[in-house]
Design a protein around this nucleic acid. Structure first.
Length: 474
RNA sequence: GGUCCCAUCGUCUAGUGGUCCAGGACGUCGGCCUCUCACGCCGAAAACACGGGUUCGAGUCCCGUUGGGAUCACCA
């Protein structure tokens, strides 16, 4: 079997498009079929090379690899023209000389009268004399749709959907500038590329009977169709730019992992019992069209965030070190020419994994591990760096100065000695130290923090905290 | 407005006529763990849109109502 993803490069790759691409990809991988990438760029006014590049980059980042393409429809015009000529010759299509203004007026009138917004059929059967009278106009080509009977779509997801042919419009297959339109090229390409299963959003369901008539006119076998339910925004309207950052790039920049996004999108409209987390391998193994739901789904950012956190927890620290590097550089936490030691960075990340929901959060926490110095959060400083903690900090610093094995278990002993002596709880000591080391009141376990920061910088930061307190008192 | 699609907790969903006083997950609330924050664990509130059928029996099948969505371009 062969499937395809056919985006039009009129915008960035967005969440809805990714979901369509994903289901095609999963179907292909599950069935050992071919996944074709085709760029539908026949709208010259709105398509750009930048968007084509963005779509390709997005697909690569997501790991949705394709077997053929990317094909561009603008490079295949001669093929489409051949079919347009053939349809004209056989009388299955005709030239239409109506002006856009005229058509618009007809539509308004139809809307007013409560009829379907259909072409009047004015140019359907012009005779030679009438055509002669319009010689100075640039015509479009319309497809002659049957006006009687029914067209039945046997959809893999929606089931049997019946359309009265009288409802179908004589659609334009060639513009007045002689370029072909979507409804023709999609049919010609899917046929020419031997696509066996057309999996796409259900916003295309109404187009399907028209396209089936085109298949019949051209003489091709129709593929199987599967129309995926839409993804909606929180307002239950079709997902769009109005709903904020919805491009794949945006999620990449916000520190989401591709696998988390893939997992989330797969579960939107598809389920496998009670399972929530699907490693990619399992996804391709378990995916099936039969388990795709029929109703539209609201996009839920909170659940995606939770999934991303799960994926970060389950990703080895060494891999996260690679993934977080671009963020560290972008935030100027590290210098591109002076990268931190991989082993050390992995150790730092290991302490932070389970409290970072995104790579951005991880990046920000890493700041206090990597930087030479920390800045205090004002509230934290006021609460914990004061006369009460001063003697404790001084004593701890002195004790730590003599420790040779600066490891968490050893450090715990040092802390224990101090709190035992003063008969206080660990928190009384740990929080001031935490502020001194990280600048804030939230961090991994304090012994781990000390170990990662290392003896030299730990002592330096404790000294700075002590001086800060003394300065405030004088 | 015409046509088409859809309808289980706030959200994603399980459920394919009896095992459902409806299960899981996110979120919310409460608790445990605890050096903070998380993670983790335990618990709670929370749904079969409505009305008719069919059937011994309906969340599950049929019809209608209501509600939502999509589409009707010389866009794709």
């Amino acid at each position: 079997m062969r499937v395809r993803f056919a985006p039009s490069p009129t915008g960035h790759l967005h969440i809805g498009g990714v979901r369509t691409a994903l289901f095609n990809w999963l179907y292909a991988r599950h069935n050992n079929g071919a996944f074709v990438l085709r760029i539908e760029d026949t709208d010259k006014d709105r398509s750009t090379d930048e968007y084509i590049e963005a779509i390709i980059e997005g697909m690569k980042w997501l790991g949705l690899d394709w077997d053929e393409g990317p094909f561009r429809q603008t490079e295949r015009f001669d093929i489409y023209n051949k079919y347009i000529d053939k349809l004209l010759e056989e009388g299955k299509a005709y030239y239409c000389y109506c002006s856009p203004e005229e058509l618009e007026a007809g539509r308004k009138e139809a809307m007013k009268q409560g009829r379907a917004l259909k072409y009047s059929g004015k140019c359907r059967d012009l005779d030679a004399v009438q055509v002669e009278a319009t010689h100075d106009k640039k015509p479009v080509v319309r497809f002659r749709m049957p006006s009687e009977g029914q067209t039945v779509v046997n959809d893999l997801i929606k089931g049997e959907v019946v359309f009265d042919n009288a409802q179908l419009d004589d659609l334009i297959i060639m513009r007045s500038d002689k370029t072909p339109t979507y409804n023709l090229v999609v049919v010609v390409d899917d046929a020419d590329m031997n696509i066996t299963h057309v999996i796409r959003g259900d916003d295309h369901l109404n187009n399907t009977p028209k396209q089936m008539q085109l298949y019949a006119a051209i003489g091709y076998e129709v593929p199987k169709f599967a129309h995926l339910p839409m993804i909606l925004g929180p307002d239950r309207k079709r997902l769009s730019k109005r709903h904020g950052a919805m491009s794949v790039d945006a999620y990449k920049d916000m520190g989401y992992l591709p696998d988390a996004l893939i997992n989330y999108l797969a579960r939107l409209g598809w389920a496998y019992g009670d399972q929530e987390i699907f490693p990619r391998q399992e996804l391709t193994e378990k995916f099936s069209i039969e388990n795709v739901g029929t109703s539209a789904a609201v996009f839920n950012p909170e659940k995606l965030l939770w999934l991303n956190a799960q994926y970060i927890i389950n990703t080895p620290a060494g891999e996260l070190a690679e993934l977080v590097m671009p963020f560290l550089i972008k935030e100027k936490i590290v210098d591109k020419d002076q990268l931190p030691d991989k082993t050390w960075l992995s150790k730092a990340i290991a302490t932070l994994k389970e409290r970072s929901k995104t790579l951005i959060e991880l990046t920000n926490s890493l700041r206090y591990y990597i930087a030479e110095d920390v800045e205090y959060n004002e509230k934290a400083k006021a609460r914990f760096l004061n006369h009460k903690s001063l003697p404790l900090l001084v004593e701890l610093k002195d004790s730590l100065g003599t420790v040779s094995d600066f490891s968490a278990p050893e450090l715990e002993q040092v802390f224990k000695a101090v709190i035992d002596k003063h008969d206080i709880k660990l928190g009384k000591l740990a929080q001031p130290v935490r502020v001194a080391l990280t600048g804030g009141t939230e961090s991994p376990g304090i012994f781990e923090v000390l170990e990662v920061v290392g003896k030299e910088r730990t002592l330096k930061r404790l000294e700075k905290a002590i001086q800060t307190i003394n300065k405030a008192r004088s």
